[in-house]
Design a protein around this nucleic acid. Structure first.
Lengths: 212, 212
DNA sequence: GTCTATATAATGATAGAC
DNA sequence: GTCTATCATTATATAGAC
C-alpha cells in the first residue's frame, strides 16, 4: 500500500515504470506542467493505477526526487579515495562530480529546478542534502590542502568549493544555450572543460612566492 | 521612463500593472504554475482585461521576458568604461554584473528557468541574447588582457569568461540553499563574494614566472 | 478599457468492477 | 494491480454590456 518506509519503496514492476516516466517528465517540464495523464500515458498505464501506488501527485514527485538523489550520491563514494597528489585528488573529484551530473542529468535538472522554486515542495530540502554532501567533501579537501601549505591560507575554503560546484552545475545548465556559439568548444567535452577550470582554480589558489 | 524604442507596445497604465504582476508571479512559480486569475488578482483587474491587452498567456509571457531582458542589459553599458588597471576593470565588471543580477532578480530567475525548460517558449532565444551580451564583453576583456601579456595565453578566454558568468549566476541561484549553512558567510554579501572569486580567478589566470 | 457571466477543456483525484 | 467511468475543480479563453 501507500505507507511510508522512510528510505525506500517497494518498487514493484509497474511502480518503477511510473517512477521512471515521472522523472523524465518532471525533469523536462517541471512539476506543474506535467499532468498525471501524461505520466500514465508514458508509463503505459492508467491514471488510477498511479494513485494506487502513490497517494497524490506531490507524493509521486517526492519519490522521484528521493530516487534521483539517492542514485546521484551513490557514485560519489567511489571518488573519495583516489590515488595521486593532492592537486590530482581535487581535480579528479571535480571531474568525477561533473561526470556524475551529466550522467544523471534528469536528477540534476530536478534539483536545479528546486533551487528556483521559492515556496517549494520540500524537495528543496532534498536538494540541499545532495549538494551539501558534495560541497562538504570539497571543503574538507581544500582545507587539508591549506594545512599542508599547498593552498593560500587567506582563501575561504567554502568559497573555493562553491566555485567548483558552481562551475560544474552551470556547465550543465548553460550547455543548451552555449552550444550555438561556434567559438566555444569546451562545452562539447566535459573533461576538457573540467581540466581547464581546475587549472585556473588550482593555479589561483596555489601558494607561491610572488605577491598578488 | 517608458519611452518606447521601436518594437515595443503601448504600455498603458493598466498594461503596466499587468506586466508587473505577471513578472512577479512567473519568476516566483514558473509559467505553468501561474494562472491568469492570479495575475488578474495581483494586478487589481479582471481576467478578460488581460486578454484585451494580450493575445493569450504565451504572448503575455513573452512580453514579460522581453521587458525583463531589456531592463537588465541597459545597466550593462554603464560598466563598460571603468577607470583603473586592467585587473581592476575586469573585477569591476564582474562585480557590476553580479549586482545587476541581484538587482533584477525576477528577470534572472525567469532566464534561469528558461535554460531548464527544453521545449521552451522561445524565451530561450531571449535568454541567449541577454547572456551572450555579457559573455562576449567578458571574452573581449580577457583577450585584451592576454594580448597585453597580463594573462596566461594558454587559457581559453571563452572558458575563463564562462567561469565568471557561472560564478555570478550560480551565486544567485544557490543562495537560498546556502544560507542555511552557518560557516558560509560570503553568501550574505555579494561584494565579498565577487572579490573573493575574482581574486582566485585573476590569480589563476595571471602570467607569472614559475610553471604549473 | 474594464467589467460580469459563461463556454469549453483539462486537471487532480475517487468509486468500484475485475 | 489494473482498469473504465466519473467526480468536482480549475484552467484558458470569449461574448457582450457599460
Amino acid at each position: 500500500m501507500q505507507n511510508e518506509p522512510d528510505t525506500k519503496r517497494s518498487s514493484s514492476s509497474g511502480e518503477l515504470a511510473i517512477l521512471e516516466a515521472a522523472e523524465v517528465l518532471f525533469a523536462q517540464k517541471g512539476f506543474d506542467a506535467v499532468s498525471m495523464s501524461a505520466i500514465a500515458k508514458l508509463a503505459n498505464t492508467s491514471k488510477p493505477n498511479i494513485y494506487h501506488h502513490f497517494k497524490n501527485k506531490n507524493d509521486l514527485y517526492l519519490a522521484v526526487m528521493q530516487g534521483a538523489v539517492r542514485r546521484s550520491s551513490a557514485l560519489l563514494d567511489t571518488l573519495e579515495r583516489e590515488p595521486g597528489t593532492f592537486k590530482q585528488h581535487l581535480t579528479a573529484f571535480a571531474a568525477g562530480q561533473l561526470n556524475n551530473i551529466l550522467k544523471h542529468e534528469r536528477s540534476t535538472q530536478l534539483m536545479l529546478r528546486e533551487t528556483l522554486s521559492e515556496g517549494s515542495r520540500y524537495g528543496q530540502e532534498i536538494t540541499k542534502l545532495a549538494m551539501g554532501e558534495v560541497y562538504s567533501r570539497l571543503v574538507a579537501m581544500i582545507r587539508q590542502g591549506q594545512q599542508e601549505n599547498e593552498f593560500r591560507k587567506e582563501i575561504d575554503p567554502y568559497l573555493a568549493a562553491f566555485m567548483i560546484v558552481s562551475a560544474n552545475m552551470f556547465f550543465f545548465q548553460a550547455a543548451p544555450i552555449m552550444h550555438s556559439i561556434p567559438e566555444v568548444d569546451f562545452i562539447d567535452d566535459a573533461n576538457v572543460y573540467s581540466k581547464g577550470v581546475m587549472d585556473v582554480l588550482i593555479n589561483g589558489m596555489f601558494q607561491k612566492g610572488d605577491g598578488k
